[in-house]
Nucleic acid binder design. Structure first.
Lengths: 196, 196
DNA sequence: CGAAGTCGATGACATTTGTCAGTACCGGCC
DNA sequence: GGCCGGTACTGACAAATGTCATCGACTTCG
């Protein structure tokens, strides 16, 4: 019997998943959480064999929660962003599947991961293969991140410890690299690619 | 027996919901769709008693699909945006619940709506009471919508049939009304409020 | 050591954007 | 009729933004 911890911020979905996984005779859901913090705390208490986490769980993301869990982790996500997969694997996530996976398939994947193997969804894998390596430098990602928070160049200057002129250079460089029209679009693209 | 049509773009979730609702002895899922178009087409063919739609289904939103369905509709959504509720009710949606609703509660709501009543989640209702009336004119919402697509002023000019100068005036007006710094922030706020 | 590359910065420049004032037309309302 | 709000435009101005050339300090590599 594989003992599972389930974390997702949407009760309807979490409950439905829990019910379906419980139907599998070798799986049992022993704990549920609505956010990463609770998941980590619960995991220490009940010591499940495996954790199934939603990637998008405000506050914070599922990856940082996954990094703090000792047991194998399967991440479930709504929309794939290429770079995310790399980040997830680097913190030790063992399974990575989209929410477009049927529940019985998810059960199989849980068994595989529990058996010591890794599983990455086919679409994500080919997505990752098509992944452009991030062309941005550290500073460029910094200013794009700040841009995405809605900051103006003046506002982000103290936050990133750069002069406004330098910030404009990095933004200009990023805009060119990503072949877009302005910094907002650049930040958008970089986010979609999982680079920031 | 209440015959249901279920539409959600995430198979994992749709499948889980279908399975859970099917467990209820007076409910049966007779059709599933992954987008609004398919939902409308399927509904005409199988004539379900009631439709359960996800609000966020690319391409297009659940509201426009709901408007084209003859049978009662229950909308399920991830995150509430105040103005959306008003729009949903105005196109005849009879139930409005968040994805944080337990499945058995959803089943009850489906029965109530099928029985002719309306149901709106408590949180959404109080959310809607706190709703600011939309201060934007039609043209202002137009240009904000275009802004949210990432268009520059020049680009949106032909799309909204206005001169760049006029567009700037509307944007400036919207920025002032919403008390934000630039058009991107204005578009963001307007979207969060469900105004665009 | 010298060449090449990166990082942070500066100044100049053109473009885009936000703001403001003013004009004009239309429809509804007292 | 007069008033008001929404629509549509123009011109002018200041600020923010995107682009480019260049510079110095530093590291890395041959």
């Amino acid at each position: 019997m594989i003992r599972l911890l389930l974390a997702d911020d949407e009760v309807l979905i979490r409950g439905a998943m829990a019910a379906l996984l419980d139907l599998e005779e070798d799986l049992t859901v022993v704990a549920e959480a609505a956010d990463g913090e609770t998941a980590v705390a619960l995991a220490e208490k009940v010591q499940p064999d495996l954790a199934v986490l939603d990637l998008e769980m405000p506050p914070g993301d599922g990856i940082s929660a996954a990094a703090r869990l000792a047991m194998p982790v399967v991440l479930v996500t709504r929309h794939a962003r290429p770079g995310i997969l790399r980040r997830a694997l680097s913190v030790g996530v063992r399974g990575f599947v989209p929410k477009t996976t049927p529940a019985d398939r998810l059960a199989e994947i849980i068994r595989e991961v529990h058996g010591g193997r890794r599983y990455v969804d086919q679409d994500f894998a080919s997505f990752a293969l098509s992944e452009r390596p991030c062309p941005l430098t550290d500073r460029e990602t910094d200013v794009l991140r700040a841009t995405r928070q809605g900051m103006s160049i003046k506002e982000m200057a103290p936050a990133v410890h750069l002069t406004p002129g330098t910030i404009r250079n990095y933004l200009s460089s990023a805009i060119t690299k990503l072949a877009v029209a302005d910094r907002h679009a650049a930040a958008q693209v970089a986010w979609e690619q999982g680079w920031i």
